Simulated assay, not measured.
Amino acid sequence: METQMGQRHVVSALEQGIKVLFCLRKAGREGLGISHIAKAVGLHRSRVLYILNTFALYGLVTRDSKSKRYRLGPGILPLSRKVLDDLDIRALASPLLKEVATNLNGTALLGLVDGDYLLIVERERSPLGIGMDIKLGHRFHITAGAHGKALFFHLEEEQRRRLIDAKRLYFFGPVACSMSKDLENQLLEARQKGFGIDKGEMAMGVKAVAAPIFHLDQRVYGALIVYGGFEEEFLEEVGQYILKKASQLESSIWGLTFSTGGVDE
């Protein structure tokens, strides 16, 4: 049935389905249960189940048979790839990076995941010249410094295991380190906070903070990074700011301006 909202004509059933997809977009790797989704989008559980079953037919969602939780499925990838093909990521990111660089007096970078590396595709320098001179096209190792700490436990398990076994971990500088319980706890804490911090291990006197950017299906897409001469007592505050800006950039990339408010059936 079509309804009218303001000057727009909206297909209610389709709108409800889109809200379910956007709700799953915010789920972690563990997924979401039907009750959680139903409450978030304001629909009855049975209605949500019908929607999820329909999406599952096309591979847009998957269901874990043990936990009975849902997450976005591989069928979403061809759609997201088409979006990326048509996007000018640098143009989207540039205003936000300029804002970050100006507000924090640092060098703001956007890096995209490229296998075991992070490729820098856009950069904005501080108006005061504070930060690091990172060239466009530079490739950092995926585990290097702040972004390595922010991204590591969002990587696929196979990739994490391979990097650990090969002892290719560069969280604290150019000399590779081994995984330890203390390091694992630090990385898990970074995942929980949503950002990673480098206190000058990568470059003496220059600190860095990074937050991940995700694909629609929650795979890691890239990272927002800022380098600067931040005082150590303000690093957590900088981290919260970068986490917020990474979320804004993510929303710009995927066009996620949709509200998941309640809908009457």
Rank of each mutant, 00 (worst) to 15 (best):
R219S: 03
L49I: 10
V83K: 14
L169P: 03
L109D: 10
H154V: 01
V220Q: 00
A150W: 02
S247N: 14
E157I: 02
L151I: 07
R71M: 12
R47N: 14
F153S: 00
L14Y: 12
A246P: 00
G73H: 11
D85S: 11
D133T: 08
V41A: 05
P74W: 12
R139D: 06
A166V: 01
W254S: 04
G222A: 00
F171I: 07
R168T: 07
A91K: 13
K244M: 13
E30M: 07
F152G: 02
G111R: 10
S251V: 07
A93Q: 11
K82G: 10
I76G: 09
G239A: 00
L151M: 09
G75F: 07
D86V: 10
E233G: 08
F214G: 03
G115F: 09
V61D: 02
V121F: 02
N185G: 03
V41I: 08
A27R: 13
A146R: 10
E201T: 13
Y50P: 08
A40L: 15
G222M: 00
L183V: 10
L96E: 10
L49K: 14
K207I: 04
A38L: 04
E15H: 14
V11P: 08
H9Y: 14
C177T: 15
L96H: 09
I37G: 01
V121S: 02
T143I: 01
G194V: 00
